[in-house]
């Protein structure tokens, strides 16, 4: 059945409650932490010489599309009426928006230890104990805008810069790709020594706390962020219907530094071992409102 994902800022009180309840149910069952672990395990740097399927790589979009879909299906086993909403961070840009409300994701972390103390994911309610993480605190952390090194959410212009790209991805198929939609939206600076981060990466930095590190999935906003990233990919395809929806078409050959490190269009995608091509179109699975 095709379901619909909608903007979180249109969610009714009842929709928020159902989404939150389903997420908490997954956490209780232990399934949520499996998603956290998968994301940790599949983060591979492009300087480390191994196959990359999730980050700094052309399959950044299809990998996260499948990851979200698996999460959404798990949610729907708890409540068939729930879908993952998206967070358009070019619009809902402040800590005051309803996304961070007491009845939805809760707000910023407190100053002393960045602990989230409001909303359903606050540690004190006993429903959200962080277990798969890099640091030993068992509470969810946020640090909006990183006051010690301030960062803004990406602007519409910054996102447009990615959407205007006319090619899906470009050599060298990693975090240094100067052209192509994928790296512009994933958000790595292509110039050596440049310390500016864009779009997807910048949002992780703005939320900060757990969203900054390997355990980013511990913050449920991860899913709303990536649903919007997924929507941007979908919009990009509609805007550029005549170009290859995925590159590279062929595996980089022997002698190419990316040989064995990136997936080509015809490859199978771990850990689900599904054809990557199955994730290039989503309208038979879900739609965006």
């Amino acid at each position: 059945m095709v379901h619909t994902r909608q903007n979180q800022n249109t969610f009714s009180t009842a929709q928020k409650r159902r989404f939150v309840d389903a997420v908490l149910a997954l956490k209780r069952s232990g399934r949520y932490d499996e998603f956290v672990r998968t994301h940790i395990d599949f983060y591979v740097g492009d300087g480390d010489g191994a196959l990359r399927v999730a980050h700094m790589t052309p399959s950044f979009f299809p990998w996260h599309r499948k990851f979200l879909l698996e999460f959404e299906r798990a949610l729907q086993k708890k409540d068939p009426g729930v879908t993952v909403p998206y967070w358009d961070w070019t619009v809902d840009r402040t800590p005051a928006v309803s996304l961070w409300g007491e009845d939805f994701l809760g707000g910023n972390g407190r100053r002393s230890d960045r602990q989230v103390t409001t909303g359903p994911f606050a540690r004190r309610h006993g429903n959200w104990t962080v277990t798969e993480a890099v640091t030993d605190g068992d509470f969810l952390m946020r640090d909006f805008g990183r006051p010690q090194a301030p960062v803004d959410l990406p602007s519409k212009a910054e996102l447009a810069g990615a959407m205007d790209e006319t090619q899906y991805d470009a050599k060298p198929w990693n975090s240094l790709s100067a052209g192509g939609f994928r790296n512009k939206l994933e958000g790595w600076p292509s110039r050596r020594g440049d310390r500016t981060w864009f779009n997807h990466n910048r949002v992780h930095r703005w939320v900060s706390g757990h969203m900054l590190g390997a355990g980013s999935v511990n913050d449920p906003v991860f899913w709303l962020h990536h649903a919007f990233v997924d929507l941007c990919w979908s919009r990009w395809r509609r805007r550029h219907p005549d170009v290859d929806p995925y590159l590279p078409l062929e595996r980089p050959g022997l002698g190419d530094p990316q040989h064995g490190r990136v997936l080509a269009a015809g490859d199978v995608m771990p850990p689900w071992n599904i054809p990557l091509r199955d994730m290039l179109e989503h309208t038979s699975l879900y739609r965006y409102e």
Binding site: G45, S175, R192, H204, R205, L212, G213, A214
Partner: peptide, 17 residues
């Protein structure tokens, strides 16, 4: 972890190098 430009990421900070 390494980035292709020789820079480094840590598990604590995955979205910058």
């Amino acid at each position: 972890m390494r980035r292709a430009d020789g820079s480094y990421l840590s598990m604590v900070d995955h979205y910058a190098s």
